[in-house]
Simulated assay, not measured.
Amino acid sequence: MNEFVYSYPTKVLFGEKAAAKHLPAELSKVGQTVMLAYGGGSIKRNGIYDELLSVLQAAGKRIVEFSGIMSNPTYAKVQEGAALAKAEGVDFILAVGGGSVLDCCKVVSAQAKLTTDLWSFEYGEKKQPAEFIPMGAVVTAFGTGSEMNNGAVITHAEKKIKGALWGAFYDFAILDPLYTMTMPLKQVFSGAFDSLSHCMETYMGKPRTSNLSDEINEACQRNIIAHVRATLANPQDVQARSELIWAAAMAENGILKIGKATDFQAHMLEHQLGAYTDCNHGQGLAVIHPVLYRHMLTEGEEQFARLAVNVWGVDPSGKSQAELAEAFVQSLAAFIKEATLPTTFAEMGISNDVDYKAIAQSTVLTPNCCKKFTTEELLDVLMECKG
C-alpha cells in the first residue's frame, strides 16, 4: 500500500423512498432559493419531478429550474447554469439525474462563485476553486459515481477537449433503487460497465502487487458482474438495481483508491472519443477496454492473471500466468457481449470518417498505466476498435 490520507464528506441516504424520508430534513439546513437541475425531462415523465417538487414546496423553498443538461455536458451549459445561479441568488443546488447532470452541477457550483473563467483558472493557472454553492444529489441513473467525488467530466466544444474540472462535493446523495427502474436497459448496462471500468482502472494502477484495496475492488467487480447477469435475467429485479447503484458509488467514493495510484488510460482515450463524437461513455469503454488490454497483456500480466482467477473464476490449474492473463481479456470480452454492449465503434453508430489521429494525439497519456503508451499505439487501438 502507498501512504494515504482518507476523508469523505458526502452523506449517503440509501434505500427505497429515501427522498421522502430524508430530503425534508436536509432542506431544512439550506437557504431559501434552490436550483432544481435536471436533464432532458425524463424525471417529469416518470413522476420523480413531481415528487421532489412537492417536497421543495412543502419546505417553503423558492425554486429556480435549470434544465436541459445533456449527456456529455458542455462547458457552455456550465456557464449558462452559473449565470442563472448568480442572477437568481441561488443558495443551494439540487441535482437530479445521472452523471451528466451531477458533473455539470459540480462545476456550476464552482463557476458561480468565481469571478474568472473556471477552465482557464484550473488549466491555465493550475488552481482549484475554494468556494462553492452547496449541493445535494438525487441519483436517477447510476454508473459514473459522480455523486461520490468532486471531479467532473466536461466537454469544451471549442477546444475539442473532454476533460476533468474540479468542483464541489455533494453534501448528501440520495440513492433510491426505485428511481433507477425507469432507466432504459441499454443505459443500465452501459452505466454498470462504467462502474466496472472504474474498478478495473483503479485496480490496474500502483502498487501492482496484491493489497487490501484491490481485494475489496475484486469483490466490487464480482458484484457488478453478478447483478448485471441478474438484471439480464429479470430487468425488474429491484435488489439487483440496489446492488448496482451502490457498486457505482463504491467504485468512485475513494475506498478502492486508498493507497493506490490509478491507471485510467482507457477513460482518457474514451473521453477524447466522446469529445469528437458525443458518443455514449459506457459503450465507448466497453469497446475500448478489451482491445487496450490486449495491448497491455505483457505489462499487465500479473494483475490480469489475478483478475482472471479472483473475479472471473478462471481455474488456474495447469495454466501459466500469461495464459491466465489472456483468459481474463477473453472473459471480459465475452461478458461485454453477454451484457448486450457494443464491441466495435461501428456498432455504436460512429462514422468511419472520424479523425482518429486527432483523438489519439489529444489523449492524455496516464503515468500509472503499466504500459507506457505512445499516441501511435493509441491510434492502433482506435483503429482496431472501428470494426
Rank of each mutant, 00 (worst) to 15 (best):
I69C: 02
I69H: 00
I69M: 06
M70G: 13
S71W: 00
S71Y: 01
S71F: 00
S71E: 15
S71G: 15
N72Q: 11
N72C: 10
N72A: 08
N72V: 04
N72K: 10
P73H: 06
T74D: 08
T74F: 09
T74Q: 01
Y75N: 02
Y75W: 12
A76F: 07
K77C: 03
K77W: 06
K77R: 13
V78Q: 05
V78F: 08
Q79L: 15
Q79Y: 10
Q79P: 03
E80P: 07
E80Y: 13
G81C: 07
A82Y: 08
A82E: 09
A82T: 06
A83L: 06
A83C: 01
L84A: 14
L84P: 01
A85N: 11
A85D: 09
A85V: 05
K86N: 05
K86D: 01
A87Y: 14
A87I: 00
E88D: 12
E88N: 13
E88V: 00
E88S: 12
E88A: 10
E88I: 01
E88R: 11
G89H: 13
G89E: 12
G89R: 12
G89D: 11
G89I: 10
V90I: 11
F92K: 03
F92M: 03
F92P: 03
F92V: 07
I93P: 07
I93T: 07
I93G: 05
L94S: 09
L94Q: 03
L94F: 03
A95P: 03
A95G: 13
A95Y: 01
V96C: 14
V96F: 09
G97Y: 09
G98W: 09
G99H: 04
G99R: 02
G99D: 02
S100N: 02
V101Y: 04
V101M: 05
V101T: 07
V101R: 02
L102C: 09
L102I: 09
L102V: 05
D103H: 07
D103L: 08
D103C: 08
C104Q: 05
C104W: 01
C105S: 06
C105A: 03
C105M: 10
C105L: 09
K106M: 09
K106G: 03
V108G: 01
V108Q: 02
S109Q: 06
A110D: 02
A110L: 11
Q111V: 11
Q111P: 12
A112R: 08
K113E: 12
K113M: 14
K113G: 02
K113L: 04
L114H: 14
L114W: 13
L114A: 09
L114G: 04
T115H: 14
T115D: 15
T116W: 04
D117H: 07
D117C: 00
